[in-house]
Protein backbone atom coordinates (compact mmCIF):
# COMPACT_ATOMS: atom_id res chain seq x y z
CA UNK A 1 0.00 0.00 0.00
CA UNK A 2 1.70 3.19 -1.11
CA UNK A 3 -1.22 5.48 -1.85
CA UNK A 4 -0.29 9.12 -1.44
CA UNK A 5 -2.08 10.44 1.62
CA UNK A 6 -2.89 14.08 2.32
CA UNK A 7 -3.41 13.77 6.03
CA UNK A 8 -1.38 16.82 7.06
CA UNK A 9 1.60 17.02 9.41
CA UNK A 10 1.59 14.40 12.14
CA UNK A 11 0.12 15.80 15.35
CA UNK A 12 -1.87 18.64 13.80
CA UNK A 13 -5.51 18.77 14.91
CA UNK A 14 -7.60 17.52 12.00
CA UNK A 15 -10.99 17.25 13.71
CA UNK A 16 -12.23 19.38 16.57
CA UNK A 17 -15.70 19.05 18.09
CA UNK A 18 -16.54 21.57 20.79
CA UNK A 19 -19.59 21.07 23.00
CA UNK A 20 -21.60 19.66 20.15
CA UNK A 21 -25.29 19.04 20.64
CA UNK A 22 -27.56 17.47 18.05
CA UNK A 23 -31.29 17.27 18.51
CA UNK A 24 -33.87 15.60 16.36
CA UNK A 25 -37.55 16.38 16.67
CA UNK A 26 -38.15 13.96 19.50
CA UNK A 27 -34.71 13.04 20.80
CA UNK A 28 -31.22 14.26 21.61
CA UNK A 29 -28.62 12.33 19.62
CA UNK A 30 -25.51 14.09 20.96
CA UNK A 31 -25.21 16.24 24.03
CA UNK A 32 -22.12 18.28 24.84
CA UNK A 33 -19.61 16.23 22.90
CA UNK A 34 -16.05 17.58 22.59
CA UNK A 35 -13.39 15.64 20.79
CA UNK A 36 -10.09 16.21 18.99
CA UNK A 37 -8.50 13.97 16.41
CA UNK A 38 -4.95 14.62 15.27
CA UNK A 39 -3.34 13.89 11.95
CA UNK A 40 -2.31 10.26 11.58
CA UNK A 41 -4.55 9.08 14.38
CA UNK A 42 -7.00 6.24 14.00
CA UNK A 43 -9.94 6.80 16.32
CA UNK A 44 -12.71 4.29 16.82
CA UNK A 45 -16.04 5.50 18.14
CA UNK A 46 -17.93 2.72 19.84
CA UNK A 47 -21.22 2.45 21.59
CA UNK A 48 -24.56 0.68 21.56
CA UNK A 49 -27.18 1.25 18.88
CA UNK A 50 -28.77 4.66 19.12
CA UNK A 51 -25.94 6.05 21.25
CA UNK A 52 -25.20 8.78 18.71
CA UNK A 53 -22.00 7.49 17.13
CA UNK A 54 -23.29 7.63 13.53
CA UNK A 55 -24.60 11.12 14.19
CA UNK A 56 -21.14 12.12 15.31
CA UNK A 57 -19.66 10.73 12.12
CA UNK A 58 -22.26 12.54 9.98
CA UNK A 59 -21.43 15.83 11.68
CA UNK A 60 -17.72 15.40 11.04
CA UNK A 61 -18.45 14.54 7.41
CA UNK A 62 -20.60 17.61 7.02
CA UNK A 63 -23.58 15.44 6.14
CA UNK A 64 -25.55 16.97 8.97
CA UNK A 65 -25.30 20.13 11.06
CA UNK A 66 -25.11 20.37 14.85
CA UNK A 67 -27.91 22.04 16.77
CA UNK A 68 -25.26 23.85 18.81
CA UNK A 69 -21.52 23.75 19.32
CA UNK A 70 -18.95 23.67 16.57
CA UNK A 71 -17.39 21.09 14.31
CA UNK A 72 -14.06 22.03 12.71
CA UNK A 73 -12.14 19.95 10.24
CA UNK A 74 -8.69 21.10 9.22
CA UNK A 75 -9.46 24.37 10.94
CA UNK A 76 -12.61 24.93 8.87
CA UNK A 77 -15.75 25.54 10.93
CA UNK A 78 -18.34 23.45 9.13
CA UNK A 79 -21.18 25.41 10.70
CA UNK A 80 -20.15 28.43 8.65
CA UNK A 81 -20.20 26.65 5.33
CA UNK A 82 -23.11 26.78 2.92
CA UNK A 83 -24.46 23.59 1.39
CA UNK A 84 -22.19 24.16 -1.59
CA UNK A 85 -19.27 24.89 0.71
CA UNK A 86 -19.94 21.64 2.57
CA UNK A 87 -20.03 19.74 -0.71
CA UNK A 88 -16.71 21.20 -1.77
CA UNK A 89 -15.33 20.44 1.69
CA UNK A 90 -16.38 16.79 1.44
CA UNK A 91 -14.95 16.58 -2.02
CA UNK A 92 -11.51 17.82 -0.98
CA UNK A 93 -11.13 16.74 2.63
CA UNK A 94 -13.29 13.72 3.35
CA UNK A 95 -13.48 10.16 2.18
CA UNK A 96 -16.36 8.04 3.44
CA UNK A 97 -16.87 4.31 3.70
CA UNK A 98 -20.34 3.05 4.59
CA UNK A 99 -21.57 -0.16 6.13
CA UNK A 100 -23.70 -0.95 3.06
CA UNK A 101 -21.10 0.35 0.58
CA UNK A 102 -23.43 2.83 -1.12
CA UNK A 103 -22.03 2.24 -4.57
CA UNK A 104 -24.02 3.40 -7.57
CA UNK A 105 -25.58 0.31 -9.09
CA UNK A 106 -25.62 1.71 -12.62
CA UNK A 107 -21.86 2.19 -12.78
CA UNK A 108 -19.12 -0.44 -12.91
CA UNK A 109 -16.44 -0.46 -10.20
CA UNK A 110 -13.99 1.73 -12.10
CA UNK A 111 -16.57 4.41 -12.86
CA UNK A 112 -17.83 4.37 -9.27
CA UNK A 113 -14.33 5.31 -8.14
CA UNK A 114 -13.60 7.71 -10.99
CA UNK A 115 -16.86 9.55 -10.47
CA UNK A 116 -15.70 11.17 -7.24
CA UNK A 117 -12.59 12.45 -9.00
CA UNK A 118 -14.56 13.72 -11.97
CA UNK A 119 -16.77 15.76 -9.66
CA UNK A 120 -13.68 17.76 -8.68
CA UNK A 121 -13.14 18.62 -12.33
CA UNK A 122 -10.57 15.96 -13.14
CA UNK A 123 -10.79 14.91 -16.78
CA UNK A 124 -12.29 11.50 -17.42
CA UNK A 125 -9.09 9.73 -18.63
CA UNK A 126 -7.08 11.10 -15.71
CA UNK A 127 -9.80 10.18 -13.21
CA UNK A 128 -9.95 6.65 -14.57
CA UNK A 129 -6.19 6.29 -14.39
CA UNK A 130 -6.23 7.32 -10.77
CA UNK A 131 -9.19 5.04 -10.03
CA UNK A 132 -7.43 2.10 -11.66
CA UNK A 133 -4.30 2.70 -9.60
CA UNK A 134 -6.35 2.57 -6.41
CA UNK A 135 -8.31 -0.52 -7.46
CA UNK A 136 -4.99 -2.13 -8.26
CA UNK A 137 -3.56 -1.23 -4.88
CA UNK A 138 -6.65 -2.60 -3.16
CA UNK A 139 -6.52 -5.80 -5.17
CA UNK A 140 -9.71 -5.42 -7.16
CA UNK A 141 -8.37 -4.05 -10.45
CA UNK A 142 -9.48 -7.25 -12.13
CA UNK A 143 -13.06 -6.41 -11.26
CA UNK A 144 -12.96 -2.88 -12.62
CA UNK A 145 -15.66 -3.46 -15.23
CA UNK A 146 -17.91 -5.39 -12.89
CA UNK A 147 -21.12 -3.87 -11.56
CA UNK A 148 -21.65 -3.65 -7.79
CA UNK A 149 -24.42 -6.27 -7.83
CA UNK A 150 -21.92 -8.83 -9.15
CA UNK A 151 -19.18 -8.09 -6.60
CA UNK A 152 -18.79 -9.85 -3.29
CA UNK A 153 -19.28 -7.84 -0.10
CA UNK A 154 -15.55 -7.56 0.47
CA UNK A 155 -14.94 -6.45 -3.09
CA UNK A 156 -17.67 -3.86 -2.85
CA UNK A 157 -16.17 -2.45 0.29
CA UNK A 158 -12.73 -2.29 -1.33
CA UNK A 159 -14.22 -0.39 -4.23
CA UNK A 160 -15.92 1.91 -1.72
CA UNK A 161 -12.59 2.49 0.02
CA UNK A 162 -10.97 3.25 -3.33
CA UNK A 163 -13.70 5.77 -4.04
CA UNK A 164 -13.16 7.32 -0.61
CA UNK A 165 -9.44 7.71 -1.29
CA UNK A 166 -9.56 8.91 -4.88
CA UNK A 167 -9.35 12.60 -3.99
CA UNK A 168 -6.62 12.08 -1.39
CA UNK A 169 -8.76 13.08 1.61
CA UNK A 170 -7.34 14.45 4.81
CA UNK A 171 -9.72 12.31 6.78
CA UNK A 172 -11.16 8.89 6.08
CA UNK A 173 -14.46 8.20 7.81
CA UNK A 174 -15.81 4.70 8.05
CA UNK A 175 -19.25 3.82 9.36
CA UNK A 176 -19.36 0.15 10.41
CA UNK A 177 -17.10 -0.76 7.49
CA UNK A 178 -17.16 -4.46 8.33
CA UNK A 179 -20.74 -4.60 9.54
CA UNK A 180 -22.15 -6.10 6.37
CA UNK A 181 -19.24 -8.42 5.59
CA UNK A 182 -18.50 -12.03 6.33
CA UNK A 183 -15.58 -12.60 8.66
CA UNK A 184 -13.01 -13.19 5.93
CA UNK A 185 -13.97 -10.09 4.02
CA UNK A 186 -14.09 -8.19 7.31
CA UNK A 187 -10.53 -9.24 8.04
CA UNK A 188 -9.41 -8.01 4.64
CA UNK A 189 -11.03 -4.63 5.15
CA UNK A 190 -9.50 -4.35 8.63
CA UNK A 191 -6.07 -5.02 7.14
CA UNK A 192 -6.70 -2.42 4.51
CA UNK A 193 -7.66 0.27 7.01
CA UNK A 194 -4.71 -0.57 9.20
CA UNK A 195 -2.36 -0.29 6.23
CA UNK A 196 -3.83 3.05 5.34
CA UNK A 197 -3.41 4.42 8.82
CA UNK A 198 0.13 3.14 9.00
CA UNK A 199 1.10 5.19 5.99
CA UNK A 200 -0.38 8.30 7.61
CA UNK A 201 -4.10 8.31 6.74
CA UNK A 202 -6.13 9.88 9.54
CA UNK A 203 -9.02 7.56 10.31
CA UNK A 204 -12.29 7.92 12.19
CA UNK A 205 -14.21 4.66 12.55
CA UNK A 206 -17.63 4.10 13.91
CA UNK A 207 -18.12 0.51 14.96
CA UNK A 208 -19.36 -1.76 17.61
CA UNK A 209 -16.94 -4.45 16.51
CA UNK A 210 -14.41 -4.64 19.36
CA UNK A 211 -11.96 -6.53 17.14
CA UNK A 212 -11.99 -3.86 14.48
CA UNK A 213 -11.43 -1.16 17.10
CA UNK A 214 -8.54 -2.83 18.84
CA UNK A 215 -6.93 -3.85 15.60
CA UNK A 216 -7.17 -0.64 13.62
CA UNK A 217 -7.58 2.20 16.11
CA UNK A 218 -5.00 3.92 18.26
CA UNK A 219 -7.72 5.42 20.44
CA UNK A 220 -11.25 4.33 21.32
CA UNK A 221 -14.01 6.76 22.21
CA UNK A 222 -17.11 5.27 23.80
CA UNK A 223 -20.38 7.12 23.33
CA UNK A 224 -23.37 6.36 25.51
CA UNK A 225 -26.68 8.22 25.33
CA UNK A 226 -25.15 10.99 23.26
CA UNK A 227 -22.23 11.68 25.53
CA UNK A 228 -18.61 10.56 25.53
CA UNK A 229 -18.49 8.07 28.38
CA UNK A 230 -14.86 7.03 28.07
CA UNK A 231 -11.75 7.55 25.97
CA UNK A 232 -8.84 5.14 25.96
CA UNK A 233 -5.64 4.59 24.04
CA UNK A 234 -5.31 1.22 22.37
CA UNK A 235 -2.34 -0.94 21.91
CA UNK A 236 -3.05 -2.39 18.47
CA UNK A 237 -3.21 -6.12 18.38
Amino acid sequence: MHSDIAGGPIGEVVVGLTDVRKEYSDSVALDGVSLEIRAGEAVAVMGPSGSGKSTLLNLVAGLDRPTSGSVAVHGEDLGRLSETGLALFRRRRIGMVFQFFNLLDDLPALDNVALAAQLTGTKAPQARRRALELLDELGVAGRRDTYPAQLSGGERQRVAVARALVNRPALLLADEPTGALDSRSGEQVMDLLLDLNQIGQTLLLVTHDQRLATRCASRVVEVVDGRIARESAVARS
Partner: peptide, 16 residues
Protein backbone atom coordinates in the same frame (compact mmCIF):
# COMPACT_ATOMS: atom_id res chain seq x y z
CA UNK B 1 -32.80 9.00 -3.08
CA UNK B 2 -29.95 6.84 -1.89
CA UNK B 3 -27.92 7.51 -5.05
CA UNK B 4 -28.43 11.23 -4.58
CA UNK B 5 -27.26 10.87 -0.98
CA UNK B 6 -24.18 8.99 -2.14
CA UNK B 7 -23.39 11.56 -4.79
CA UNK B 8 -23.74 14.36 -2.29
CA UNK B 9 -21.62 12.49 0.21
CA UNK B 10 -18.76 12.31 -2.28
CA UNK B 11 -18.94 16.02 -2.94
CA UNK B 12 -21.68 16.76 -5.46
CA UNK B 13 -22.84 20.31 -4.81
CA UNK B 14 -26.54 21.30 -4.66
CA UNK B 15 -26.10 23.10 -7.96
CA UNK B 16 -24.65 19.98 -9.54
Amino acid sequence: RRDLGVLKSVGMTPRQ
